[in-house]
């Protein structure tokens, strides 16, 4: 097997990428080509990156092509039935809404789904001392939707902060684990000095809604008197949750 570099840091990766994508100016290109000539592992690395980029292109195309193929097959069925489907959906919705308000049979899960949007996370900067690096490393996983991985990285940080507790809580919630999110969010929700307090209260109330704990949810939402979204949620909880 060919020899490759042990580690490719971000700077070298971007340099190789710029070379492959023809984004280097003439001077930089000539200098980099000299480096490639003199260094076999760098030469192999450039070839490897070319392959990886090409694979992303062709397999993304395959994915899109199979989506197109499957939607082409389904399209005629949709066209034929859409009028009946809309009519049936309208009738079902009408029955559901009437039932909802008359008998208060919504579940916490349904109300939660109407209000929950995940926190987008923080911009990432991959430098600095160890704990800071680990925090942003976890944040990259969070942004990739790898919530378990993010939680694991943040758990290993020696000095936890309110920011870490807040994002650990929302990571659990994004992972549909409301129960586990509560302990983390509650510490921030009770911390008057935390910049994350208001957001933690909101997500904590939502976690209780998801778990059908109406009283706890209302108790926390009462602490957000100026938040319009919180008022709407309180109204919906009172109207629809048994």
């Amino acid at each position: 097997m060919m020899e490759y570099k042990d580690n490719i840091d971000k700077e070298l990766f971007e340099k190789i990428e710029a070379y492959i994508q023809n984004r280097m100016n003439a001077g930089d290109r000539t200098a980099f080509e000299k480096e490639i000539q003199a260094d076999e592992t760098l030469r192999n690395e450039v070839a490897l990156q070319r392959q990886l980029i090409a694979s992303v292109q062709v397999f993304t195309h395959h994915k899109e092509d199979s989506f197109k193929a499957s939607s082409d097959v389904k399209a005629p069925v949709k066209k034929m039935r859409h009028v009946w489907m809309y009519a049936a959906a309208a009738v079902t919705a009408l029955i559901a809404v009437t039932w909802f308000y008359q008998y208060k049979t919504a579940t916490g899960e349904q109300v939660y789904a109407n209000y929950f949007t995940p926190d987008a996370g923080l911009p990432v900067m991959m430098s600095g001392e160890n704990d800071r690096y680990d925090f942003y490393n976890g944040m990259v996983s969070y942004k990739e939707g790898e919530y378990d991985k993010a939680i694991e990285i943040w758990r290993g940080i020696a000095q936890p902060s309110d920011t870490i507790s807040y994002f650990t809580g929302v990571a659990y919630l994004n992972n549909k684990n409301a129960e586990a999110s509560i302990a983390h969010l509650a510490t921030v929700a009770l911390n008057d000095k935390s910049a994350w307090q208001q957001k933690a209260i909101w997500y904590l109330a939502l976690a209780y809604v998801k778990m059908n704990n109406k009283d706890k949810a209302l108790e926390w939402l009462n602490k957000l008197p100026d938040n319009e979204q919180a008022k709407l949620l309180m109204r919906d909880i009172q109207k629809t949750l048994p």
Partner: peptide, 21 residues
């Protein structure tokens, strides 16, 4: 996201692909 986050995500994803390959 921010552009810096995307740069980092892209780097990490490509390094993961490299490792797997």
């Amino acid at each position: 996201n921010t552009e810096d986050s995307i740069k980092t995500i892209k780097y990490r994803c490509m390094m993961q692909l490299r490792k797997l390959f």
